[in-house]
Simulated scan of single mutants.
Amino acid sequence: MKKRTITGAIMLIVLIPLLIIEQLSIPLKIVFGLGVVIGVFELLKMYNKNYKKESVAIIMLLSLASYAGIILNNHIPNLFIIITLINIIIILALSIYKEDFSKDNLGIMLFIMFYISLGAGSLISLKEIGTRFIVFLFLITMLTDVFAYLVGIKFGKHKMAPLVSPKKSWEGAIGGTIIAVTIASVFGILYGKILPTEFLNPNGLNTIIDGLGNLSDINKVGKSFIIIFIAIIVSIGGQIGDLVASKLKRNYEIKDFGNIFPGHGGVLDRFDSSFFASMILFTILMFINLI
């Protein structure tokens, strides 16, 4: 427990400035790029695939290309789509011409390439849309996780997914969602009052969704419903991401994906729910910007 607490504190000390301070955008991208590299190795180790070094290098390059595509997509429109199509073509070609890229491994390759890259890239993209969305995301995922555990211990009677994660209960999941959504929604709805200064809120936004699409024209009640709805979807998405990671670990009989974070496991152990939730939140915000 002590080791887990110390590691968590160090991670917060490193990540909070990177996520909040605008001038640290490039170091943040580099750190998460390293996270993509480590995450790829964690999945390859989980799958226990003895790929040749050159094949591992190709998988790594394709994953980093996907990561670069999504974080640069705001600056170069459609870049992510172009890179994705090229990557798929490359993987299909490799499945024909390289022995260790057999057709049976196509799904594994695609999963490795997109799961980590999209998760890490979505987090970076949220930061570029607005730091407030990173805060909103982590409020939801962390509070959902903490209170799902606490409520589950106290009131949990009905197992949520006994074959995947025996300790998780429906009572915990619902309780965690309600508490996390309530706190995150208050932050989102009262954003302008919580952070009223020009330094913390330079655009003078009233809610976190002001400035997106045509949402600024909607009244406060309408915006409140939208924020609450988004928070619910993100909370559920984060829990699904956690269950997906648990399912993978159970299927491949491993306790953790890695051990880079003592007491917490690997990159995917620590960011499984955040990666999944960030993809969902980023998709929602992109859709809102289109309407």
Score class of each variant (00 low, 15 high):
178 I>L: 12
179 I>E: 00
180 A>K: 11
180 A>H: 08
181 V>T: 01
181 V>F: 03
181 V>A: 11
182 T>Y: 12
183 I>Y: 04
183 I>P: 03
185 S>N: 09
187 F>H: 04
187 F>Y: 11
188 G>I: 13
189 I>Q: 03
189 I>W: 03
190 L>F: 11
190 L>A: 15
191 Y>E: 00
191 Y>S: 06
193 K>W: 15
193 K>M: 15
194 I>P: 11
194 I>W: 05
195 L>C: 13
196 P>C: 09
196 P>A: 11
196 P>D: 12
196 P>R: 08
196 P>G: 09
197 T>Y: 13
197 T>S: 09
200 L>V: 07
201 N>H: 10
204 G>M: 05
205 L>H: 04
206 N>R: 06
206 N>S: 09
206 N>D: 14
207 T>L: 05
208 I>Q: 02
209 I>F: 03
210 D>W: 06
211 G>C: 03
211 G>V: 06
211 G>L: 01
211 G>T: 06
212 L>T: 01
213 G>W: 07
213 G>H: 05
214 N>H: 14
214 N>L: 15
214 N>I: 15
216 S>E: 09
217 D>G: 12
217 D>P: 09
217 D>C: 10
219 N>Q: 05
219 N>M: 11
220 K>A: 08
222 G>Q: 05
222 G>A: 02
222 G>H: 08
223 K>L: 11
224 S>N: 11
225 F>Q: 05
226 I>L: 12
227 I>K: 08
228 I>H: 02
229 F>M: 10
230 I>R: 07
231 A>V: 02
232 I>L: 14
232 I>N: 04
233 I>S: 01
233 I>F: 06
233 I>E: 01
234 V>F: 07
234 V>Q: 04
235 S>Y: 05
235 S>V: 12
235 S>A: 14
236 I>L: 15
237 G>T: 12
239 Q>V: 04
239 Q>A: 08
240 I>C: 02
240 I>W: 11
240 I>K: 11
241 G>M: 04
242 D>W: 12
243 L>F: 09
244 V>I: 12
245 A>N: 02
247 K>H: 14
247 K>S: 09
247 K>T: 12
248 L>N: 01
248 L>F: 14
249 K>R: 15
250 R>P: 00
250 R>C: 06
251 N>S: 13
252 Y>I: 02
252 Y>S: 02
252 Y>V: 03
252 Y>L: 01
253 E>R: 15
253 E>Y: 10
254 I>C: 09
256 D>W: 12
256 D>K: 15
256 D>G: 13
258 G>Y: 00
258 G>P: 05
259 N>T: 08
260 I>A: 07
260 I>V: 03
261 F>E: 06
262 P>G: 03
263 G>T: 00
263 G>Q: 00
263 G>N: 05
264 H>T: 08
264 H>Y: 09
264 H>W: 13
266 G>N: 04
266 G>Y: 06
266 G>S: 03
